[in-house]
Amino acid sequence: MEQFFTQLTNGLAVGGIYALIALGYTMVYGVLKLINFAHGDLFTIGAYLGLTLLTSLALTDHIGGIAGILLLAVMAMGLVGIIGILLDRAAYKPLRTSPRLSAVVSALGASIVLSNTVMLVYGPSTRVYPQGLLPSQVFYIFGLPVPVMRFIILGASILLMIGLYVFIQRTKIGTAIRAAAIDQDAARLMGINVDRVIMLVFFIGPALGGAAGVMVGLYYGQITFTMGWTYGLKAFTAAILGGIGNIPGAMVGGLLLGVIEALGAAYISMAWKDAIAFFVLILILIVRPTGLLGERVAEKI
């Protein structure tokens, strides 16, 4: 039982990060039906930009630890969001009316370009965030040690996700995004500037990915230029698991994937961890062909 709870917290911490990245996939997919394979690399860029900002501006020295980190995260999110918009302009916009898979190949090309750019700019070796910025206390729950940062990571992910959910559900712009996701032409007829909506989506999605990147850098301390591919694949899996295009689905999918991985590794086999996760995904999709919560994408026949 002790093992179970420990592994549950392990899984939720990782799952929170998957969920945050999955949101970017899901938002872009919801509006454009595009699997943005470069999304994982935007996450990597977020982590690297966060490192650059942290070391060059020395924010935490000037305005204190917590405020500095928050400001840093916001700046990195903004920059990654802008890169997201530029990426859309360069790689996806010209392919808006083309077959869907052409945009997927363009996304794969963009992924190669982005990860290799990071490698050439920052060098291929592992980069390390400065230490000691975050609280390192350990909580004891029922006598089990749980690092407090795990809660903060999970909490921050959930907070960002709820914020996004409220934004999409309760605001006018959010309604426009939902409308564009259902039917772009009809949305246009209703006076919605669909291009503006797409731009916004390509800002928010990557920005959330960038936030996840900064969080990974701050907490785990170590970043590499190839990490986006692994995280991106996991996050895509999470988005599909929950039902792609569906924001609560991405959250549920991410957390669930993290937990499946942790429990599968703990109780079945460590070395088969990823295989177990994919196997569960396949089983779930066989039973529920559009993910756990179902997709929120209008199907045209």
Partner: peptide
């Protein structure tokens, strides 16, 4: 005697195990 998956960030699971 087991293997971890290289390239990840969180090895909490394997440590707990």
């Amino acid at each position: 005697f087991d293997a971890l998956t290289p390239g990840e960030q969180d090895y909490g699971t394997i440590l707990s195990k």
